[in-house]
């Protein structure tokens, strides 16, 4: 990798700063507490789909492994348990094994915020308010944030892939349907196949008709840390898209610590199986959750991706004065 300086991105970078200022302003006006957080942590939450950066603290005989945080969740949820209230983080996050591309960089900026007492659909209104608040003079901007184009995951699959609800929620039927469509179904999981079909056939068509698209109610296999719906097969999780690109997502937070603990164990087993970096597990995180995470919804937004929309550029590197490139 090498260092690249690109002064011709100055105007885009100024838009980046402007969006950043507006987001802080919005959060401040709406009583979210800004929290500055460490990015080096002695332990992490196990996640089987995220590889991490590992480093070491050295002082004489004392040596200790430290990890760059792939998301601020580990700290923000602790704070929520202690009663900090509505809060947000806008800062760096790090993910290893994610090479530079138009939409990815191993070092990126994340906006994560939590609001107490609301569920995922109410959070959709809050995120829309935030998007409306960011007013950047840009005549080329072809998107309006007056409303969401709302679509459940099942509706989107039916509309764009002709996979109906029954086929979507039944793993065996789903695999058959995928095979019929020509996808390679060997050595794969429902989750991976779901993501592949979503990325190939659905995502390019989202957020392209003048409004951002909100996809909601993901199959429970894709629940992540979201609360399940009463139908027993979907989770209270949303993602939103502009110009075919996923910008962010949110979910009603799972506050059942037994479920969380189970997930901790299965995710760390998967990490071992996949020979990922063997990091120290943050056991006190579970303790904190046992104490009690309040009813809340958390949202995560890829900040560079969001700014890309307002700056009207198609890749992250066009927003920066200094890029680390391949």
């Amino acid at each position: 990798m090498k260092i690249q300086t690109t002064i011709k991105n100055l105007n885009n970078y100024k838009i980046y700063l402007q969006v950043e200022r507006t987001v802080h302003e919005f959060m401040n006006k709406n009583n979210y507490l800004k929290v500055d957080l460490p990015v080096l942590s002695p332990a992490l939450i196990p996640e089987s789909y995220l590889e991490i950066f590992e480093t070491k603290f050295n002082y004489l005989d004392k040596k200790e492994k430290l990890y760059l945080t792939p998301s601020p969740e580990i700290f923000l949820k602790r704070l929520l348990v202690t009663g900090v209230g509505n809060c947000y983080y806008l800062g760096r996050a790090y993910r290893n094994s994610e090479p530079n591309s138009d939409w990815h960089s191993p070092e990126f900026t994340m906006l994560e915020f939590y609001k107490l007492g609301i569920d995922y659909l109410e959070m959709a209104d809050e995120v829309l308010k935030l998007l409306q608040y960011i007013k950047i003079e840009n005549k080329k901007l072809k998107i309006s944030f007056k409303k969401w184009e709302k679509m459940s995951v099942a509706q989107a699959f039916l509309k764009f892939t002709k996979i109906n609800e029954e086929e979507l929620f039944d793993e065996k039927l789903f695999f058959n349907k995928a095979k019929e469509k020509g996808y390679n179904i060997e050595k794969t999981t429902y989750e991976d196949l779901f993501s592949q079909i979503l990325a190939t056939e659905i995502e390019p068509k989202l957020g392209i008709s003048g409004y951002p698209t909100l996809l909601y109610n993901y199959p429970k296999q894709m629940a992540s840390l979201a609360k399940l719906n009463e139908d027993g097969r979907t989770a209270q999780r949303c993602e939103f898209y502009i110009n075919g690109l996923e910008i962010g997502g949110f979910c009603t937070e799972l506050n059942d610590y037994n479920e969380q603990e189970k997930r901790f164990i299965s995710e760390s087993e998967k990490r071992k199986k996949n020979k990922m970096i063997d990091h120290t597990i943050d056991k006190s995180f579970i303790k904190a959750l046992k104490y009690g995470l309040p009813f809340c919804t958390g949202a995560g937004i890829g900040f560079e991706r969001l700014v890309m929309i307002f700056a009207n550029v198609t890749s992250i590197d066009k927003l920066k004065l200094i890029n680390i490139i391949d």
Binding site: E98, N100, H104, S195, A199, G249
Partner: peptide, 12 residues
């Protein structure tokens, strides 16, 4: 050809 990682699930 661009690397893309969905929120949950393997990289694409």
């Amino acid at each position: 050809a661009d690397f893309y990682s969905p929120g949950k699930g393997s990289a694409l």
